[in-house]
Nucleic acid binder design. Structure first.
Lengths: 341, 341
DNA sequence: ATGAAAGCGCTAACAG
DNA sequence: CTGTTAGCGCTTTCAT
């Protein structure tokens, strides 16, 4: 910047002005300065700018993983929305480990983020402590809880699970295998599983935990089929696992929804095109990203602490569950055919 | 920091020391300072640190989108590897638009990134200009080209396409529908399509462009079936599109691989569990992320400009293409059954 | 409209 | 081992 000022024959103050408030500097002076900047290929120091303005225009997102579509969809949406507000996004993955989350949060504070997107409502005290000390606004996504200490922008995971359960019950299903990812450190899954147990009744459901992946779904279905007689339906806590369940069921010669129904939660773009198309509870990942980004941007920018936002979830009925018209007696005796319709 | 020094009754220099080189300061002094830091909840200013050290520990990734598994897998891997090197990752999406890419790159330079991951080898001059002026190292991923002006860490897209084509030809297929995403701004797709045209022979293949998504694959397959008689096989330039093709074929009552073969490129985690499991050319996304992250970290840290890295790709044969044993005459006359075996 | 000068919060010689 | 001091590169009064 000093070089530029010399090259243009003006003071550093003037150069700084054409950088920040070009309208206050005379036209020809500005032209000269801009030429100098161009010549010297000057790029202003981010650090120096930050130290004076107190602004870094950096936001951080702490998410379990990017390998799950639900999060990559959300993050993509957050990033795209943030552009319009002039922010850049640092992503950090936590693998649903609160310790790791706190560690990475610390690193993000150290590089100067002005705000955080956290996932869920289960965090370590170290993280809360950091947030308080560094005075950094933080939003929790993927969950809705108006009583949580941080503002939440998300959906009601319990409700989503209940919706799916109610649908299965409506269809007359009674014996249900619930397939879900690791409970450890994952409050969203916990909430869904708990809601399922309550809605279905503990004696009507069997729980199978496996990694959140297609392969995990395959493994869970395999175990469910082996360990549980006369199942009516599968309820998966995430679509990717449902993909695996569908695959395994097909491999075993079981027909969906004729022999068993499969319902899920997420509604990923691919879920419309499975065999058969998947009945699933839609979770508005993209919309959530957008709303969360807007909230945090406003919070950081205008110091307006947002209030919790609850996004709508709803059942998308497709053909992996019986259509109401089909609920008439069948007389299958195969152990894996449903025993009640 | 001044507050801390006052609270601890030492100079700011000492406080700075316990922050950076704690071992050089006396045990009890250090304890006092640390207590003061704890009391006041002091967090050092990232900007001030950066202005002095000249380091931000920030790297930027410019990718088309996070909504495609191949990129989210890569980014996930990059982020995880970077942690070990003490870097944080800013992600910015470009939608394969060089202008947008250059704009975002500019923003990233303005927030102080020390290095870039770019996608592919097609970029705007503005971007190169920026890279030169800001003196920021940049790596190109998803592609291998040892002659490219920037170091590349990727795979040979032409070779990947050729591998898939060769497999289809080996199987005796002659009339092939090539399904691919938008060519505009996407050098990876261009390379694959071009290689396919050369390998297959222009008179043996038909090209169908659609969005890179399952729905896009469905649409492309629909058009291919309607517009082209007696197709032998589908070659998809990305697995997600193959998922859609498989779906549409099944919907039309066509059997894979009996009536038509389907081959693809990517080998996503889900591709093992389609119906039938997908024959596809494996692209090592995670490994690429890891290698790229290591290269860029080393470059930024030790000023060692890396040399291009070409990662291995290989065909993963599954059942969406005929097994060699099956290549015997069939006498179907349905217009969409293959005419030659 | 422009320049001079005082910091921003911290690090790094250099002195003691 | 610890304190003093001079910046780092820029923004921002306050004069002119």
């Amino acid at each position: 910047l000093r070089d530029v000022s010399r090259e243009a024959g003006v003071s550093v103050a003037t150069v700084s002005r054409v950088l920040n408030t070009p309208e206050v500097v005379q036209k020809d002076t500005r032209a000269r300065v801009e030429a100098a900047i161009e010549n010297l290929g000057f790029v202003r120091s981010a650090a120096a700018f930050a130290i004076n303005s107190g602004r870094t225009r950096l936001l951080g997102a702490l998410i379990p993983t990017l390998e799950s579509d639900i999060f990559s969809l959300t993050i993509n949406s957050i990033e795209q929305t943030l552009v319009d507000h002039g922010f850049s996004l640092i992503v950090a993955t936590t693998d649903d480990d609160p310790e790791k989350e706190a560690r990475k949060a610390r690193e993000l504070v150290d590089v100067g983020v002005e705000g955080f997107f956290l996932t869920g409502v289960e965090h370590s005290d170290m993280l809360y402590d950091l947030l308080r000390r560094a005075q950094v606004p933080a939003l929790a996504i993927s969950n809705f809880d108006s009583n949580f200490r941080l503002p939440t922008v998300g959906y009601d995971n319990r409700w989503a699970a209940k919706t799916a359960c109610a649908h299965l019950i409506d269809l007359g299903h009674e014996r249900i295998a619930v397939v879900h990812g690791p409970l450890m450190g994952n409050d969203r899954t916990k909430a869904r599983v708990e809601a399922a147990r309550e809605t279905l009744g503990a004696q009507n459901c069997w729980f199978f935990e496996a990694p959140v992946s297609v392969a995990g779904g395959v493994a869970a279905a395999h175990r469910a089929l082996a360990e549980t007689a006369s199942l009516d339906a599968f309820l998966c806590m995430s679509d990717v696992m449902a993909f695996g369940v569908l695959h395994e069921l097909h491999r075993c010669g079981l027909s969906v929804p004729k022999d068993l129904s499969v319902a899920s939660i997420h509604n990923l773009p691919a879920s419309e095109f499975t065999h058969p198309p998947l009945t699933t509870v839609h979770l508005p990942a993209r919309q959530m990203g957008k709303r969360a980004a807007e909230c945090l941007a406003r919070w950081v920018e205008h110091d307006e602490r947002p209030t919790a936002i609850c996004l709508d979830t709803h059942l998308v009925r497709r053909s992996s569950t019986l259509s109401a018209g089909n609920i008439s007696g069948s007389t299958q005796v195969d152990p894996h055919k449903r025993h009640s319709r």
